[in-house]
Structures are given as structure tokens and as C-alpha cells.
Design a protein around this nucleic acid. Structure first.
Lengths: 139, 139
DNA sequence: TTAAGTGCAAAGGCTTTGCAGCATA
DNA sequence: TATGCTGCAAAGCCTTTGCACTTAA
């Protein structure tokens, strides 16, 4: 089956189960970032028998395969999103909870500078800013 | 008692208990960053009856009062340190677990740029880099 | 066919909370 | 003295795991 052979999971020798397909579909369709519970609840709407354990197991798999990014905004905001080609980070509005993506060329510069000054090899940058979004800062 | 009147807790109308004093002392003396459990274990050495609940309650209080910073490196590394005047961030070696502090003037630039481009008011930047420290990257 | 995934329920780790007793100011 | 803190134990929350059954390839 050509579709499955090209599937990101099949390529890496992992069976494409209905549950995995469903979870990836939901993550792809999601306009916002989902945490494990939100993903589970959306999955339940289409598969009444899917379990939360399956959601966690597959989120971990997707993360290991590099299919999704895990974004830990704080102890309660841990969300997941399908990995896209363009690297970006997040702004978190502490007033309304809105999550906004941002990019900046300064991040690569910062990483390069720190790697040089501290003799460090950076594999990942965890970065987000907390504050007030456009709407909330007016008040 | 003059000492207590000048105490950071007393100033903010919170009783200075022996437990709070002990916890602040340990945090001040700590060369490295401590998580709740490590802080509790060090506290036990000097007060056999202190409870983990007291540690958590007071860490939250100190955080609210701005006496300590909470640094959440990932889901298992959540550590605390006495707040100092100089702002800094952290490098986390994913090989040996070492935590190194770093500073960079590019961070302020980055924040200013993002605030301008995205019409955002940043109150806090969460930033750390994961990778290999000097020792581990040689291997 | 068979290695791997799933659902369920139980357990794990970290953190919070209710309550009675105790200490600070 | 009165408010508020502490210790203890229990509960909460998120996440992981053991086991028997099911399924993808």
C-alpha cells in the first residue's frame, strides 16, 4: 500500500495503527497547541475506546521520531504540535492564556555566541516569553 | 528585634519561622541549584522534623515574594535559587546533568525586538539551552 | 504468523491540602 | 492572645507501566 509505505511512521518501521493515524490527524488539524488531555478528548469524539495511555505512549513516540514538538510553557501548560519546517518560539499571554508564535534571527546569533563563550554544544533552545498580548496590554 | 524587622519575610508581613530561616539559609549557601527534594534532604540534616509540605509551601511563598527564582528545565528538573541582582539563564548538559549559568546582552535585544514586532509586553523570558558541556562534548 | 500496539487498571512521582496542634508577633 | 505556620497523612494530578488481548505487516 503506497500510502502507508510513505507514511512517516512506516518509514521509521513503526506500524500505522488507527489510533496513531487519528492522533496525527488531530494534531495536524489543530489550529492551536494541544496538551495530552485536550488531544485525548478530541480523539474520544472519533474513537470512543481510545485510552489516555495510548495518547501518552504515542506522543512520546512522535516526539522521539521528531514528528511533534513538545512545548513546556510551565508546570501546567505542556503542549504538543506537529513539527513544521520553520523554527519558531512562543509568546504566552499570562492574562488570557493566548499562545502566539514568533521568530527572530537573533536567536541563532544568541545560541552561536553562547556556544562560543561557554564552550557548549547546544542541541536545543527552550525559549518563550510571558507577558501581555496586544489586547491585554491595553487594559 | 532589629534583625527580624529587616528580614525579607518580616518586611512583607510574614512570620520568620525557624523552618523558613533554615530553608533560606540552605538556598543561600547552595552552590548549585536545588530542587524541592534536595532542599528537603539538606534541611532534614539540621531539623529532623521538618516536613516536605513545609518545603513546598515555603518555596511557593518565597517565589511569590520574589525571594527565589523557579527554574523549570524540563518535567523532572525543577529547581530553585536565591534571586540575585544579575539576571542570568542556564545551560543544561543532557549528558552529565550539569547546570551552567550564562548571560548575554543579546537577550535584552531579542526581547525588545519581539515586543516591537509582535506588539507584546514581556514580563519574563524563559530561556535555557540543552546540549553538551565542555567535558561531555569532547566524547 | 509474530512482533508490536492497545485498553484497562494500578502504580509512580511530584505537589497540594485538611486538620489539629503549636509558635510568632 | 490571635493569626498564621507546621507536621502528618491523605488526596490530586499528570504520566507511566504490567498484563492479557488484539492488530498491522
Amino acid at each position: 500500500m503506497r500510502i502507508k509505505r510513505n507514511h512517516p511512521l512506516a518509514i521509521k518501521d513503526h506500524p500505522v495503527t488507527a489510533q496513531r493515524q487519528l492522533l496525527l490527524d488531530i494534531l495536524r488539524e489543530a489550529s492551536s497547541h494541544l496538551d495530552a488531555k485536550a488531544l485525548y478528548q478530541r480523539a474520544l469524539e472519533r474513537d470512543r475506546h481510545i485510552s489516555l495511555a495510548t495518547v501518552y505512549r504515542n506522543l512520546r513516540l512522535f516526539k522521539e521520531l521528531g514528528l511533534v514538538d513538545e512545548i513546556r510553557l510551565d508546570e501546567i501548560h505542556c503542549c504538543y504540535e506537529i513539527k513544521r519546517s520553520t523554527e519558531h518560539y512562543h509568546l504566552l499571554c499570562t492574562s488570557c492564556g493566548n499562545v502566539i508564535e514568533f521568530k527572530s534571527s537573533l536567536i541563532a546569533k544568541l545560541v552561536a555566541e553562547v556556544e562560543h563563550n561557554y564552550d557548549f554544544k547546544a542541541n536545543r533552545a527552550v525559549l518563550h516569553l510571558e507577558g501581555y498580548c496586544q489586547k491585554c496590554k491595553k487594559r
